[in-house]
């Protein structure tokens, strides 16, 4: 039988899923709700200066890339399965599109972070 290359995508999926499960709710709460509303956190928490400094630090680069890329790979894998579950049987096309987008997102994020 042909060995599946699924482990590559499954590992990225798993890592992204775990990261999202552990800290996803907190991130959404901070960036999408609390900070925009100006509650719970200082008003300048996500100010340009703060975020630029964060994105220029190595730890910041790693964290941002991890969250953006792994979330994308996680989602890409599940969405590919979801399409299969809904009866889209063009397996190769679906995979190329889903994983292609995740790959593109990863490259853009990495490129952007390196440029900062």
């Amino acid at each position: 039988m042909k060995r599946s290359n699924e482990p590559i995508f499954w590992s990225l999926f798993g890592a992204g899923g775990m990261l999202a499960a552990l800290i996803g709710p907190a991130l959404v709460l901070i960036t999408g709700i609390a900070v925009p509303l100006g509650i719970l956190f200082p008003a300048d928490t996500m100010s340009y200066a703060h975020m630029l400094a964060f994105a220029q630090s190595w730890i910041g680069k790693i964290l941002l890339l991890a969250v953006i890329a792994l979330f994308m790979w996680h989602a890409a894998h599940r969405i590919a399965i979801l399409l299969h579950d809904f009866g889209v049987h063009a397996v190769t096309v679906v995979k190329v599109v889903c994983y292609g987008l995740a790959f593109a997102g990863t490259v853009i994020a990495a490129w952007t972070l390196l440029g900062l």
Binding site: M1, K2, R3, S4, E6, W10, I81, D85
Partner: peptide, 14 residues
């Protein structure tokens, strides 16, 4: 595991 490692094996499960 030859079969297990294939798409027809464990990887067909979601």
């Amino acid at each position: 595991m030859d079969l297990g490692y294939a798409h027809e094996g464990f990887w067909g499960c979601t």
